[in-house]
Design a protein around this nucleic acid. Structure first.
Lengths: 132, 132
DNA sequence: AACATAATGGATATTGACATCCATATATCT
DNA sequence: AGATATATGGATGTCAATATCCATTATGTT
């Protein structure tokens, strides 16, 4: 459903959300979220690039959210690190399906759409009640 | 959302559904569905093992559905070749999440569940109107 | 019996996601 | 200025999913 990378990114973002306004260094996030530290750095870079988190080098530096956790959705995070691809045309490339998907891919894409909707309606804030 | 293998399996099953009762050899299915023939054989073997299709060797042999297409769902096909895994426990293995998922994984698993529901409510038959 | 057709099984190759490592750049503190 | 802490960038390694290939087995036809 979602990739390992997206799972890691979500853990890191929930971790940051639960300590809002505090800058957390990468190795601390890695320790808390159980994500391999060296790989997490790759992911954090993508989140910085997507402007979901800001970074600060040097002592007492680290990462923090750029927006309140209520304004960041699960979908935002997923799309930043591992974009969900919608099916825009039938992979068979048949001429008769040029402008509308065949029933199979119509159905699959609808389901992808439902998942995106669900993820877009869930903010990070809503995940930090009771959260470790 | 679904793996390449599941996509291939679905194409093959829809292909068989649209030619019900006729045995189609693997290379014909491969040609129609644009799935690499040698890889398709691997997949067909899994579908046979799951008893969604039966196979017949020799001349005029091939594959055919074991049940009417109205009684096979998209989920049946996906689970046969690439089982969707539900999240049964928090991957962090925290003691406080031993018996209930944390909000993040609760949300993700709910979405997986919704997708499974959608796929389980869609029969192969419903995909063969207008289908090539 | 011989032949042709088709599935099955097993070994191997390719590719991309995941992961590690090391060097470098940047910032803070004393 | 020097030392330390931290992010960044690039090269490389690992592994599972995907894909290919060839030999073997089964079945129908002549």
């Amino acid at each position: 459903m979602i990739s390992q990378t997206a799972e890691y990114a979500l853990r890191a973002m929930v971790c940051l959300a639960s300590r809002e306004a505090e800058a957390l260094p990468g190795h601390v996030i890695a320790q808390i979220t159980q994500v391999p530290a060296s790989y997490l750095h790759k992911i954090m870079k993508q989140l910085v690039h997507a402007e979901l988190v800001s970074s600060q080098r040097g002592p007492s530096g680290g990462f923090r959210l750029t927006r309140p956790s209520s304004q960041i959705t699960v979908l935002d995070v997923i799309m930043a690190v591992d974009p969900i691809k919608r099916i825009s045309h039938c992979p068979l490339n048949l001429p008769e399906h040029a402008h509308s998907l065949c029933p199979l891919h119509r159905r699959i894409d609808d389901t992808i759409g439902q998942a995106c909707d669900a993820f877009s309606q869930t903010s990070l804030q809503s995940m930090i009640e009771n959260q470790s």
